[in-house]
């Protein structure tokens, strides 16, 4: 019986498999994550979150593109253009700090949303799965840090 839109497992697992944050999870672990994730559709140009918003969730791109923008008061600078499988707003999984930049749909897109409260619950009920996600997140943040260092070196700041 389809009750409250019961999940079609095989179809719903596919986009999750493509997301880097969940790439190390087994099919069984993905099912656990599937029960916690939300799915949202955004039109090109629609704002996902604003700079300064209180971050409560991490976003992963299932389809489409998302621009990460920062406004310095005079002009808006594009920091990144992210595609399918990539994640953004990842610091929200760690703390409640304000969003560092604005995220805006670069094209019509489908996003998978994972709330910090659910991640905390996952740490309690499925610590192994949560550890794998946390490790992937740490790797992702490490890569971002290396990227930033390289950029700073090239700009002569380091």
């Amino acid at each position: 019986m389809r009750f409250f839109g019961r999940d079609d497992l095989s179809a719903d697992l596919q986009p999750l498999r493509k997301i880097r944050l969940f790439s190390t999870l087994t099919a069984r672990e993905l099912k656990v994550v599937l029960a916690l994730r939300h799915e949202r559709h955004y039109l090109a140009g629609e704002i996902v979150f604003d700079e300064g918003d209180e971050g409560q969730a991490i976003y992963a791109i299932a389809d489409g593109e998302v621009e990460i923008l920062r406004n310095d008061g005079e002009r808006t600078q594009r920091l990144a253009l992210l595609g399918p499988g990539e994640i953004f707003g990842e610091l929200a999984l760690l703390d409640q700090a304000p969003r560092a930049a604005q995220a805006r749909a670069g094209s019509d897109c489908r996003l998978v949303v994972f709330f910090r409260a659910d991640f905390m619950g996952l740490l309690e009920t499925h610590p192994k799965t949560a550890s794998k996600i946390a490790l992937s997140l740490a790797r992702h943040l490490g890569a971002r840090l290396r990227q930033a260092n390289t950029g700073a070196r090239q700009d002569g700041h380091l």
Binding site: F4, H38, R40, E46, F49, D53, Q56, A57, V113, F115
Partner: peptide, 17 residues
């Protein structure tokens, strides 16, 4: 999650929190 689908994108994260 079913109820959350009814929340527009702009209000989604704040409302769910």
């Amino acid at each position: 999650r079913y109820l959350a689908r009814a929340v527009p994108n702009a209000f989604f994260e704040r409302t769910l929190h």
